[in-house]
């Protein structure tokens, strides 16, 4: 009896300690997903406040509506482009990380300098970025002209805009991932490099034959994290281009926002939920496929 009681007590204590997180995650994440799936099949809007009396079941109409929307096609193109560029980000971060993985004068300052773009608030970054690539007054265009190059009209074409979005992402992400790579590089035993050197392997060979395979777990982490970031960080893209030119640079998230809360549009929570359901599924697929295919290219030894 005493034993049973103490076991019950231990259980209760365990639940009590983890309760704040369990409750929050259950309500905000899991109940949220279920509710969102439910809403995606209905016509519910927030017109009458929290009134569910004239809610109607719509079947797959919301999904059909999203799939037939032109903006959705733009979002697919922009999002795919950003995800396909993630390995480039990973590679640049690795190169930067390897370059920084040795002794420097005032090393801490150097590392802080690389990391700072990552911790600046996005509104400030976008303000700077839009001023630097201003349509008429761009200082970058000025520099290019003085070097005898013909500057493009930034943000004028869909691909220009997408590339500028990517460059902003890269600029913000590279410092963070370089940090992570420095950690991984420190863990590589130096005798491997020494052995390779003795056998006459050059810097390039050593980088591709030793460094690249040995940091592959970190690369997996970087690729998953940054792919998910491109799916979830829609506010920067919306701030920078507001979907323009035309609606070419919508991403899934900003489209979701526009459907649900955008400007004077109707609060189409059903369509927005349908889109969100698809994106959450996609996020799940990206994460699991990356975990599944990792033994093909990730080296844990």
């Amino acid at each position: 009896m005493v034993k049973y009681e103490s076991k019950l007590k231990a259980n209760l204590k365990g639940y009590l300690f983890s309760l704040p997180q369990i409750a929050g995650i259950s309500i905000l994440v899991y109940a949220g997903i279920l509710f969102m799936v439910f809403l995606s099949f209905t016509n519910w809007s927030f017109y009458g406040g929290l009134d569910f009396s004239d809610i109607k079941f719509m079947g797959l109409k919301n999904y059909q509506y999203i799939l037939e929307d032109d903006k959705f096609v733009s979002a697919i193109i922009t999002n795919s482009f950003l995800v396909l560029m993630v390995p480039v980000t990973a590679f640049c971060s690795l190169v930067l990380g390897s370059a920084m993985n040795s002794k420097f004068i005032y090393e801490r300052g150097l590392r802080a300098a690389i990391f700072i773009p990552n911790i600046c608030n996005i509104v400030a970054i976008v303000m700077i970025w839009s001023a630097l690539f201003h349509t008429r007054l761009s200082p970058i265009s000025g520099i290019m002209q003085s070097l005898g190059m013909e500057p493009p009209i930034w943000f004028a074409t869909p691909w220009n805009a997408r590339i500028l979005i990517y460059l902003m992402n890269l600029w913000r992400a590279i410092g963070f991932f370089a940090f992570i790579y420095i950690g991984a590089l420190n863990a590589i035993p130096t005798h491997l490099y020494e052995a390779a050197k003795v056998e006459g392997a050059g810097t390039m060979t050593r980088f591709f034959k030793i460094t690249l395979p040995l940091v592959s777990p970190t690369t997996l982490f970087v690729i998953i994290t940054e792919s998910l970031n491109t799916l979830k960080h829609w506010a920067p893209v919306m701030l920078l281009t507001d979907g323009g030119p035309g609606h070419s640079t919508y991403v899934f998230g900003s489209l979701m926002y526009k459907f649900a809360f955008g400007g004077n549009a109707i609060q189409d929570l059903g369509a927005s939920s349908a889109l969100a359901v698809m994106v959450v599924a996609l996020a799940g697929i990206i994460t699991t496929t990356n975990w599944k295919i990792q033994d093909k290219w990730v080296n844990y030894s």
């Binding site: 949220g32 509710f35 929290l50 998910l228 926002y257 929570l269 969100a276 959450v280 799940g284």
Partner: peptide, 16 residues
Amino acid sequence: SMAVPPELLIVPHFVT
């Protein structure tokens, strides 16, 4: 739950 970014749950959060 970490794979489900809150940035994508704006509609249910709005209601909650």
